[in-house]
Design a binder for these strands. Sequence first.
RNA 1: GGAGGAUUCGCAUAGCGGCCGAGUGCGCACGCUUGGAAAGCGUGUAUAGGGCAACCUAUCGAGGGUUCAAAUCCCUCAUCCUCCGCCA
Length: 420
Amino acid sequence: MIDLKVLRENPDLVRNSQKVRGEDVAIVDQLIAADGIARSAISDFETIRAEQNVLSKSVGAAKGDEKAAILEKAKELAGRVKAADAKRAEAEAKANELALKIANIIDPLAPVGGEADFVVIEEIGTPRDFTKDGFEPKDHVEIGKIIKAIDTERGAKVAGSRSYYLTGPGAMLEFALVNYAIASATKAGFIPVIPPVLVKPHAMEGTGFLGQAAENVYHLEEDDVYLVGTSEVPLAAFHMDEILENLPIRYAGYSSCFRREAGTYGKDTRGIIRVHQFDKVEMFSYVKLEDAAAEHLRLLEWEKDFLKAMEIPFRVIDVASGDLGASAIRKFDCEAWIPTQGTYREVTSTSNCTEFQSRRLNIRYRDENGTKPVATLNGTLVAIPRMIVAILENHQNSDGSVNVPAALRPFLGVDKLVVA
RNA sequence: GGAGGAUUCGCAUAGCGGCCGAGUGCGCACGCUUGGAAAGCGUGUAUAGGGCAACCUAUCGAGGGUUCAAAUCCCUCAUCCUCCGCCA
């Protein structure tokens, strides 16, 4: 939810934000109108209500004819209060519904444009020259078979398309990645968390996943709960309706993530780049608004550190306005080099959601002037399947075996994943 | 799944249909007292919206209802606790 004060005082800012995101601009003016109506309805209701309260209080003291007269007037007033209250509730609901549809106000620093208009901030590491190494790189599906780490065929047999088994070294690789991630996050001051992955509608809505992203979310009809697509959801809703102290607060959540991947038919159908279920370690920060931009860069640094430790060439991009989620004002993606695709692919991502989620979820902190919404930020530390793809493809040998990056060896116990 | 009990201000509790936005204790803040501390005494201490302000409005788990008036009465739902059943 955006700040309605900003909307009232600077509607152009909101209009422009919607425009560069490629979202509905007209809704801004609809909201301004609805907000005006709601505010005057509130004021009308409060005036009549105050009158009623005064009159009601006088009933007890009054006697005889006087009392009868007051009661009669009070009765009439009660009817008007009820009507005004109904009008107020309706106007507020309408304004609120519109307000929830408007995306967070974009950071002016974010590049303007669509998916292709990202700006490359930096490239780290150099893609490996396989010609020099004297062999054609195999893709992760092939390597996964050779070392018996990934089984997509049985995944499809049992669970349908975009499903997979991690077996043997694949499973061990997940444990090693998770343990390395949690160990480094803990060292950096994050509190490790294993959150629920089934959440109620309010948590989903509060984090902004029931708007444009709704079609990618699994919903369990029978119980009206959602399967989260990221632990960002339960980590944000963790402090719902609370007033926080001692900011910043940082959590590292480890959970399964579920995505319907509707509308991606034909995209990344091979392998485990795009799947319905995967595990992920997610960083989540609660900070003061004025610290949000700096925290965003810190999250990015932790992501970069992770990829560097995995010895994978990657680049960082500043995602363009049209490609941002509703909650984010700015987003950086880290994209790993995938040799068999000859391109960089997103492996981690960090978003600054400022007060958008905290306003919906009612999460505040206290300062000298009262309470204020906190800012929330999230960033992927490691999304398992994509990291496995990057590791297998970048560190493969000609026979299909895979060298383990030094940082992972203590967690995996071996230097090399060998041909099975 | 079945049977009971609970849900009030950070915590613990009191609360008669109007004098209850709500008392008390603890905690916290400030002041007095003291050589210093503890104790003691005094004052303050929920959130949100509106107004320059006095102040007004809303909120006693949530939503409905009865009433001139609801923390208090009625209905529905949620959550927690205890017991029984089932179960990783």
